[in-house]
Design a binder for these strands. Structure first.
Lengths: 239, 239
DNA sequence: ATCCGTTTGAAACGAGTGTTTGAAACGATC
DNA sequence: GATCGTTTCAAACACTCGTTTCAAACGGAT
């Protein structure tokens, strides 16, 4: 009796997950979906394997079967989420460089930030979960996480650094790298929800205004970063 | 025999710690010193109580005796490290507002960032440890940590937000808050060592050039943030 | 020398972690 | 329908975590 109702409850939850995931979900897919959400909400180390498997209506053995280890699961999740973002960035960089050999700083920043902020399309129902996950991973302290993440980011950052250096002639690599890292860091802070969601305890946003606001936030971010980089290299804002 | 040598070894290590801490170190002081360093290096949750007590040549019971719990230890550490920074910020804000009723954005940013970056003086031998600790705490995900930290930051941020709003007339609170949070976030990323120390795996800095470079880094940070805020409100950089 | 509040120390507790195991259940192939 | 590799599951494993306990050591006042 009880096993029957338990199985039924699982079926229902699985169906719910399938709907959220967008298409037929194997255990593997459900594990990845839950991991993206939980890793993004609480961080990698703070999320237990059992929390993931419970949310995915599976059990801990399945993780080791499909991914070998918790770290293997993280690797799979990072690969899955970052691939689309990186491809979009590369595509937009191609587009920019096809139009002009030396794109402006503003164009470069926009081409880097926007694929990160607005990846709602192409990643299941809501990409905001993926957003938060990526942002959270950027700020993770665990060196293993940083390594796995860097392995993915490295695929585009070389080209971006080169393009940025061309857009800012006459500056050494350290300055360019500072600009790039600041951009990456601000994007991370924005996406991780530290800015908007948790925030220093003030009024919490009701979550209702969440359509046009994202575009505004993205604009703010692009403006801030672009202005920061430019004034960094003109060096006249504060001296 | 063995207990004697063990006691001797402890004495030596305690003496070493006392030298590092700058003055006579009770168990309580040694615990705090070790906690600052380890929390800053690995984060709060990732640092076990035993790692702290081992480094301080004490044991776990001492933590609960002196601070009640691990969270109590964190609270004591945050209080101790943030007090000086906040006081310095308040002092410089007083100074600015005494000279002019509406300080410029550049002046405000400088008065906020520099006390954070250059608190080497007044905090034991090397304040860079404290720097990293504070930066790490700013980016911590655990809501308890964020709460404790916010309790300390709140003491100045109200005045800073007001001053920033006056320096940027005609903008709503959301924009001002975005500017403030970006400043805080960038400072945090800078201090936590994510920018410089760990970094995406490229060449690691030898650690030799560590005198004038900090000043340069601080300048870079101030320039970037100031420029970012200003262009955020002129809104012409990318449109 | 005795007492007593303060501080330290070793050991144990219960809860939670990632990982491993071995036996079931499943699904296709012969 | 028996057999095979694949996939799932409950249980156990070894370990670490923060916390608690209780006895011992310390240090000044009586």
């Amino acid at each position: 009796m009880i096993p029957l109702t338990a199985a039924k409850a699982k079926e229902a939850r699985v169906a719910e997950q399938e709907q959220a995931a967008g298409r037929g979900s194997s255990t593997r897919d459900r594990l990845i979906d839950s991991a993206v959400r939980l890793f993004g909400e609480k961080g990698f180390e703070a999320t237990s394997l059992r929390a993931v498997t419970d949310a995915a209506d599976s059990n801990v053995a399945a993780v080791n079967y499909h991914f070998g280890s918790k770290e293997g699961l993280l690797r799979a999740v990072i690969d899955g989420t970052m691939r689309a973002v990186n491809e979009e960035r590369r595509r937009r960089l191609d587009e920019l460089e096809a139009r002009s050999p030396v794109p402006s700083v503003a164009e470069l920043v926009r081409a880097f930030v926007e694929p990160g902020v607005a990846l709602t399309t192409g990643h299941g129902v809501n990409g905001s979960v993926v957003e938060r996950f990526i942002g959270r991973m950027m700020g993770e302290s665990d060196p293993r996480v940083r390594q796995i993440f860097a392995d993915q980011v490295d695929r585009v950052e070389g080209r971006y650094l080169a393009a940025m250096a061309r857009a800012l002639p006459g500056r050494d690599e350290g300055d360019v790298r500072f600009a790039y890292t600041s951009m990456l860091g601000l994007l991370s802070l924005h996406q991780s929800g530290v800015f908007t969601a948790v925030e220093w305890p003030r009024r919490q946003t009701s979550g209702a205004q969440r359509e046009g606001s994202e575009i505004i936030e993205s604009e703010r971010l692009v403006d801030f970063i672009t202005g920061g980089i430019l004034s960094l290299f003109s060096g006249e804002s504060s001296r």
